[in-house]
Nucleic acid binder design. Sequence first.
DNA 1: GTGCCACGTAACCATTCGGTTGCCTGTTTA
DNA 2: TAAACAGGCAACCGAATGGTTACGTGGCAC
Lengths: 107, 107
Amino acid sequence: MDDDAVFRALADASRRQLLDRLYQKDGQALVELCEGLAMSRQAVAKHLAILEAANLVSWRRVHREKLHFINPLPINRIAERWIAKFERRHLSALSALKKSLEGDGND
Amino acid sequence: MDDDAVFRALADASRRQLLDRLYQKDGQALVELCEGLAMSRQAVAKHLAILEAANLVSWRRVHREKLHFINPLPINRIAERWIAKFERRHLSALSALKKSLEGDGND
DNA sequence: GTGCCACGTAACCATTCGGTTGCCTGTTTA
DNA sequence: TAAACAGGCAACCGAATGGTTACGTGGCAC
């Protein structure tokens, strides 16, 4: 279960904020992600390493910059496998519709 | 943001397991929830307290037993506010339909 | 070529976390 | 009424967490 890594990575508000930033603008370098945060660059790098380990963020080196990219797949997997289970209780009709739509393969 | 409490509560595998157990059978007492877990009763009680604080579990006293009940609302709220955002990238058409079905009307 | 800039690594620190043990209170039940 | 049972409370402990400071490395620009 590396779902655990994802849950743990999402448990920290600073890391969720970093994901938020990457969601708003993908492919940011480390220094860029640090701007405005009350945290040292090294602390941000540690958070990003944890997000990486959970496969929520990947990166690519461009010259001397390390550009970070968000990967929503683990979150979706958790949403599907875990959260949908609880949602089903309340939104069974909607969920059924959702599932049938997903079966249609529209994207 | 008490979303933070929910994320943190979900970050621990033991707590997710407890939620799973309550999902399978709601209204269990403390000793019942302890069965088969490699953990003391007090440890389980602490986990349940954290789930309570995150509003994921509520309880009712019946005689000398403390019966626990699962509350999926915080999970749904997170799914709506946070996870759907990432999902939207991939399933934008579906998400729009889902939103309109929920009467959100927000695009 | 020198210095700045983006990043990496490592040591260190305080706090939180997950768990324990020990003991106490109250409620059933034999 | 005594014992067993469900749970509460608090002290304690090691390890993980979130952060810092200090210093090292390599690319790019002047």
